[in-house]
Design a protein around this nucleic acid. Sequence first.
DNA 1: GTCTATACTTGGATAGAC
DNA 2: GTCTATCCAAGTATAGAC
Lengths: 215, 215
Amino acid sequence: MAKSGTPSRVHEAGSPRSIETRRRLIDAAVATLQREGFARSSARVIAERAQMNQGLIFYHFGSVTNLLLAALDDVSAKRLERYGAMVDGVDTPDELVDAAAAIFDEDLDAGYVTVLVEMIGGASSTPGLGPAVAARIRPWISFTENSMRGVLGDSPLAGLIPASDLAYAVVALYIGLEMLSHLEGDRSGARRLAAHAKDLSRLASALIGPAAEAT
Amino acid sequence: MAKSGTPSRVHEAGSPRSIETRRRLIDAAVATLQREGFARSSARVIAERAQMNQGLIFYHFGSVTNLLLAALDDVSAKRLERYGAMVDGVDTPDELVDAAAAIFDEDLDAGYVTVLVEMIGGASSTPGLGPAVAARIRPWISFTENSMRGVLGDSPLAGLIPASDLAYAVVALYIGLEMLSHLEGDRSGARRLAAHAKDLSRLASALIGPAAEAT
DNA sequence: GTCTATACTTGGATAGAC
DNA sequence: GTCTATCCAAGTATAGAC
């Protein structure tokens, strides 16, 4: 299980061979989480998709859980980078909400958040997984916080609630929406909400008022 | 729950003996979900807590999943009743938010939502569970919608976004917050948010304006 | 160092006892 | 009708082969 702390017997050697194997396993893990869900993401199933022996997962990652976390890290890094680019140069709530809606849609279509949601769900189902997943969500909260801070400035709303808490709430809402969509196997609820986002951003703009142009 | 459709071999006989057995199993299932999580809520573990043979779960409920759903139904019904009482007689946003905050706290302390959150998580981990859990969340959305509708009246905010969509978002936020708290094994984030709820309700009151007194 | 064949554990479900 | 002893599948992990 390579529980943090244990040096464990994971072989992270950097030989080309090893890197290639790890890559294939991570890709297969991502695909399996997206298409089959956490439930079916067993060593056997993932290995079959990668066309490799399931024992390799334990050799290279120490446990299935670790492989799944590596998979989460992989998509997480890619997404965060992409989001950074999208949010860059945004400085009004209106634009930020537009960017967020675009991100939301892209995620729904591509199934990126699916990986995160499956892992959050899986945490209910795998002893030590919770904290590890929580640690991987933290960067997202920071990212959200920074994105909003620039936009909020020192508006009245900013005085009412700290940006860090607001960011926490936004991420929670995002996760909750994805979770519900996911349960229902139908994203119409979330999409309906996204459609209202624009209306709400106008509301936010009004609340923030002059600050919007100030920054 | 005998999966609607399948006549199955579940014995729902109403003999006192049978009822007693079912009760004990449901109570044990609730306790296990709360204290050990979905992961450890196997037939064997639940049965041991109930001091019964694990085979009884299959005799009375057909499957572990069905027992867990019965457990969810059990707490869900109790909570919904309690919430109804709390929200009854509320007609301003301020009062509603107060009631909601009280509910939120009570839930966090007693671990009631834990059962729901564990089941939502478990859905990632058990093939057909998703839709069944989604169906059990729907009454909560309706409840929220009704609670808010009375308060919103025909205020400007009500014109901006339908009560049904707003209710969906509120429930999603609630679930998301619980989910995050749960992952971190620490509810401080959620509590910090709850502390801001009062501030935000004042904001809402201002937006709704005269309607608050009107109803 | 890399990988495969094999061992062991846990859990869901049922055939049959009371 | 109610319950228990038993079976079988699936999964993780490792001992040992290459």
